[in-house]
Design a protein around this nucleic acid. Structure first.
Lengths: 160, 160
DNA sequence: CTCAATGCAAATCTTTTGCATGCTA
DNA sequence: TAGCATGCAAAAGATTTGCATTGAG
């Protein structure tokens, strides 16, 4: 956890400085938190976690860094409908992570899932190709989310 | 259908009062605005439009009504990434509207599209069935959005 | 009549901005 | 050293809440 000593540590720096951004202690710490957490965190959660290691960091830096990371494509931003954004690393030392989210509309729990690459690819290829032509739109990414009731909330709501 | 003289105004009332909610002038006005606009509006846009017809309405009522409409499934809420929510009628006098959104990440323009019911159905059936089983999750709705550069922004960015 | 719905003002909460100072490249 | 980056405080917005009043059923 935390610090990797081998070559893996700088997997993101090339991309980051390639955009003309400087590699600083706060930025390093934020990426480290995201990489360790391996899940979607709110800005506040990131702020709290980073402060444990680097107590002087400000909220501003967290937001600004997340924004930069978003621009480089290293971080993806999500809205699960509870009024605060969530952030997660879209790549890691091991390459891209591909998954989507299953959101419980009752308790807010979010489940990550994967495993539909093939079906998804088929569908997206058709739609993206067609939309690109029809609207002369250059599609760069997509968002797929499912909403419903999780196991616990189904039980509690008697709505099986 | 036969009884809707004035612009099909009461197609939604059954559903609404079925939930135990009262049919009031402000609520009628808000739904009317949404039905007339036929597109995603922000709370503020709705507020402004409703005020033209019903000048005393408050922001609070707009938000509270949109929330209720969301609960009944009459209205869907979207986040296009610009910090304010958008709302649109998910059904109308003519039944459900089925479409998704294509968002320009540069200028924020949002295009509605439809016409992939078949492909989408195939894909969603597979995924939803599998996810329901795997996580014992009752899926009630999904969100699909595409992001990229619209025609104008492609040109301006020289990134064709 | 009763209690849900409304409107106003104030509060909340997340995210952004201005600016003097610090630190990377 | 030159600017980008940081942190603080304050601002900006969107949305929500408290409460007295109004009105639908």
């Amino acid at each position: 956890m935390g610090r990797c000593r081998n070559r893996g540590i700088d997997w993101w720096q090339g991309r980051f400085s390639g955009f003309g951004y400087r590699v600083t202690v706060p930025r390093r710490a934020i990426i480290d938190v995201l990489a360790t957490a391996q899940k979607h965190l709110s800005a506040e959660e990131i702020y709290i976690l980073v402060r444990k290691v680097y107590p002087n960091i400000g909220f501003t830096t967290v937001y600004r860094t997340l924004d930069l990371l978003g621009q480089t494509g290293l971080v993806a931003k999500f809205d699960f409908g509870d009024g605060r954004a969530r952030y997660e690393l879209s790549q890691g030392p091991g390459g891209k992570r591909h998954h989507h989210h299953l959101v419980c509309v009752d308790c807010g729990r979010v489940i990550d899932y994967d495993g539909f690459e093939q079906e998804e690819k088929e569908f997206l290829d058709k739609v993206e190709t067609s939309l690109s032509k029809k609207f002369n739109f250059k599609i760069t990414r997509h968002l797929i989310q499912f909403y419903g009731l999780c196991e616990n909330c189904r039980r509690q709501n008697n709505s099986v």
